[in-house]
Design a protein around this nucleic acid. Structure first.
Lengths: 224, 224
DNA sequence: GTGTATATAGTCAAAGTTGAACAAGGAAAC
DNA sequence: GTTTCCTTGTTCAACTTTGACTATATACAC
């Protein structure tokens, strides 16, 4: 995934000479919960790959006490170029995101309406809880470095990013409540699971070119 | 990733006896653009893994003409159990999603304010474009199977899923416009890239337990 | 008629991800 | 005072993903 590479490269660039463990702690602490995380192994792998590619270089290997030796890295000129290029590329392109709920909901009609309603309401509550939490974080911090006691400092772009996440969680929660209500009221009727006729129809539709063409048109429209 | 496994298992379950290529076509056509896709190799890999685990089984291998032989699979009782369990697990848990923009925006302060404004405005436009597109799709289809010309049929839960995606894209777009405006008006001031003092402060904060503790508290709150 | 593209069906090597495991020191628990 | 857990820093094997490639048949253009 480019995101691991970009994050690790960006952190090595930003933190100056660093060893893998600091990058790892950085990532662990920085990233919002509910936003996907990067495993320890991936970070070390990325560091090695970036080194092999000449984007970063080894500064040295120190051994404090009898602790495991640690290798320190620094960004190179070619790494700086790659970073600037990749960053712009990824910010400008509106790329696909991997949404686990979207995937799972594909099979929503397998659950009973009652179970779906319970699930959606619970999800909405969890999401509203998150919104409240990050709202409090925003309220208890400031982007003004000078005025603040240092502990309350949170950079402006990080605050903006958190705000975005809160907005996204909030509409997601609203959608959940709305959808639960629509199932309850009978406005939204989920096809029963494995209805023989419909399943047969779908099997045929999927194979048919008619269907594939319609979807293709739809996709082209979106990509243009 | 569990999502590949769940999708492939669910499709084998739903489509009845199928071969890999049909599952692949299915996934290609079904999934919304802007929502992550699954590579061809992953599908065949998942089919083999599921077979090895006893969740699905080989029905047979046919050879039509001189085309490549195709293997047909069917879900087993143990696969049905796994499907039901995993599906509920994933629907109920509010799991992390991988958002490429979130990752890239981490380094937003590297771009100039002007570049950020241009990028955000362009992103907003692209997202609004998508919203319009799927809104048209929703308008031109119906979840009523009987009344419709068959081509316009789209199951209710799929329509709901598309609506959710449209809502998410819409707030994302609003956030982009709002943020662009705030940068323009000077309300949102991005820290300049690599300011020596702040970088030093951050390097120290990150290492300090004070910072880690604060983040830990924040995370616990969210997870409870 | 011949080149070019696309649909069918799948394989494979190279790359990336995951999470447990290692090892040793220090802090906290009982 | 010793069992137990956490922190530091990294490695490793097992697993998953990617996407280019193979090979044939058919459709379409020129």
């Amino acid at each position: 995934m480019w995101s691991t590479r970009l994050l690790v490269l960006g952190l090595v660039r930003w933190l100056g000479p660093v060893h893998g463990y600091l990058v790892r702690r950085e990532l662990d602490s920085w990233r919002l919960p509910g936003v996907s995380e990067i495993g320890a192994g991936s970070i070390y792998h990325a560091l090695k790959r970036l080194t092999a590619d000449g984007a970063i270089e080894v500064v040295g290997t120190e051994s404090v006490d009898a602790r495991p030796a640690r290798t320190t890295y620094r960004i190179t000129a070619s790494g700086e170029t790659e970073f600037q290029r990749t960053l712009r590329e990824k910010l400008w392109e509106v790329s696909a995101s991997d949404d686990p709920f979207h995937t799972a909901w594909t099979f929503a009609q397998v659950l009973t309406p009652a179970e779906n309603i319970a699930m959606l309401r619970q999800r909405a509550e969890t999401l509203y809880g998150r919104v409240e939490m990050v709202t409090q974080v925003l309220a208890s911090t400031t982007s003004d470095f000078k005025e603040a006691n240092e502990e309350a400092f949170l950079p402006a772009h990080a605050r903006a990013m958190i705000k975005r996440q809160a907005d996204l969680w909030a509409v997601d929660a609203e959608w959940c409540e709305d959808t639960a209500g629509r199932i309850e009221s009978g406005d939204l009727v989920l096809e029963p699971d494995l209805d023989a006729d419909h399943a047969k129809y779908w099997r045929e539709s999927i194979s048919s070119d008619r269907f594939v063409e319609r979807v293709a048109m739809f996709r082209e429209g979106l990509e243009s």
